[in-house]
Design a protein around this nucleic acid. Structure first.
Lengths: 114, 114
DNA sequence: TGTAATATATAAGAATCTTAAATATAATAA
DNA sequence: TTATTATATTTAAGATTCTTATATATTACA
């Protein structure tokens, strides 16, 4: 499993991108999906995820709908129009970051890339 | 330029990898090199870099030599034997992280990869 | 003579994440 | 039937990391 240290800073981007792909999701579902996609390598903790969801809602990036499913509360999140533009910026930035890190981590990559 | 938020957690790995590649470097040189490699996209601040170097020294990961160059103090850092094994772990972890993030950020990548 | 570049240090504060505990229901296994 | 696992969210305390700002000092260049 990937140490949480590396995860710092990328949580928001992960959440927003998943919402862009899937339309709407609830918190628990997001953690499950991330584990599934990364084969257990990235595990989001609830203590990190839920506060981020609340913050993104306050910022007008996410829209919220509470629903009851089998007597269990589910709070669905989806992107607002602001959210759809924020996710594009975040993904662009992440892509630049991935490329930059690869230049450092894997110098061979840089040579073959240029 | 890449927001510092994304950088959180990867600073140590960047520093250690540069030292693995270059043998020994001083702090200021590390910031210059990172800017050069990433074409200014990643900029390390001194307030983040120097404390990390001190910490890695305390942990026995870095070896330190002070030298005087043109009446200017330079503190050279290089990997200890422990450092050489730590950098391998860190790079391995970073590689897994990059791959996992790409699975999320760029779902097309996942399809073509599997 | 002044400004930019070189070179390191560190304190105060902000932001983010971890850990842990709390709450509650449904489903499954023993 | 009872215990455990899975589902679902919340939030507080503490740790960690990074930013911002300030301090110090020399060399190079305009």
């Amino acid at each position: 499993m990937i140490s949480s240290e590396l995860l710092k800073g990328s949580l928001k981007t992960i959440v927003l991108k998943l919402l862009e792909e899937n339309g709407r999701m609830y918190g628990y579902e997001i953690t499950r999906r991330v584990e599934e996609i990364t084969k257990g390598k990235i595990v989001l903790t609830y203590g990190a995820l839920y506060p981020v969801l609340h913050k993104l809602e306050k910022e007008g990036v996410l829209h919220v709908e509470s629903e009851n499913y089998n007597n269990r509360m589910r709070i669905y999140y989806s992107l607002t129009s602001k959210g759809r533009s924020v996710v594009k910026e975040k993904v662009q930035e992440m892509t630049e970051f991935l490329k930059s890190i690869r230049f450092i981590i894997d110098p061979e990559f840089k040579i073959s890339y240029e």
